[in-house]
Design a protein around this nucleic acid. Structure first.
Lengths: 110, 110
DNA sequence: TGAATATATGAACAATTGTTCATATTTACA
DNA sequence: TGTAAATATGAACAATTGTTCATATATTCA
């Protein structure tokens, strides 16, 4: 390839991209969607807030697995908790999540 | 928790969820977005089609790393290739991808 | 045909991740 | 206060993933 043109293209494209830190953060954000247990947890929460043991039953996994994954979801601000007596009720943080979810679904159902 | 109510909730929520296979596929789809190298490749491709070596320069990684990741992107139908002489030019498969990307960006910039 | 360039691929390795088991913490209530 | 139930957390392990090096394949052009 013509050497100068190559360099120009690289520079031009680079200049349009968000900075690297932002893109690393973005990857971390999407990483959360990239696990089937977490996806199923989020999907269950579209319907209503749920306690940990309900979620565990719905997705068919150990309570401790679900707890661990809920922590991941909390750390990325995808869910929030509300304590009520012995139980913790989880719900979705905002509606972005459902939109992203639906777009992914559209893509794979094509 | 009241045992019957718990069971009812589990059944009710389960009935609203897409089937498990679909959710596994969805997780696999998002998995692709969950790596910074791939995110940066996709981001570069928003601007224009690019050869492998241009992409390698833009993201600052080995040619072989980029080739491997492009294969992952191809397998999930996120990019397509066009061969022109010695070079392979990659471009995005559709605009869903950019929309999903932008929604993720919105979320993390909040 | 042979050399040079661009890309693709296989094997190996390190790093990360998801799950489970065991146990700690929190809360309600007898 | 002690027990039971719900949840959270730490350690360990297996599995998966991303990168690199070395090399194979494909293409152009002398």
């Amino acid at each position: 390839m013509a050497h100068e043109e190559h360099k120009d293209i690289v520079q031009e494209v680079k200049s349009t991209m968000p900075d690297t830190d932002t893109l690393f953060e973005l990857a971390d954000f999407f990483k959360v969607f990239g696990d089937s247990t977490r996806i199923r947890i989020m999907c269950a929460l579209f319907e209503r807030e749920l306690s940990v043991c309900c979620i565990a039953d719905i997705v068919g996994m150990e309570q401790s697995t679900v707890s661990h994954q809920l922590r991941v979801l909390r750390q990325e601000n995808l869910v929030k908790v509300r304590r009520d007596g012995k139980q913790s009720y989880y719900s979705l943080e905002d509606e972005h999540i459902q939109k992203i979810f639906e777009m992914g679904l559209e893509h794979i159902l094509e």
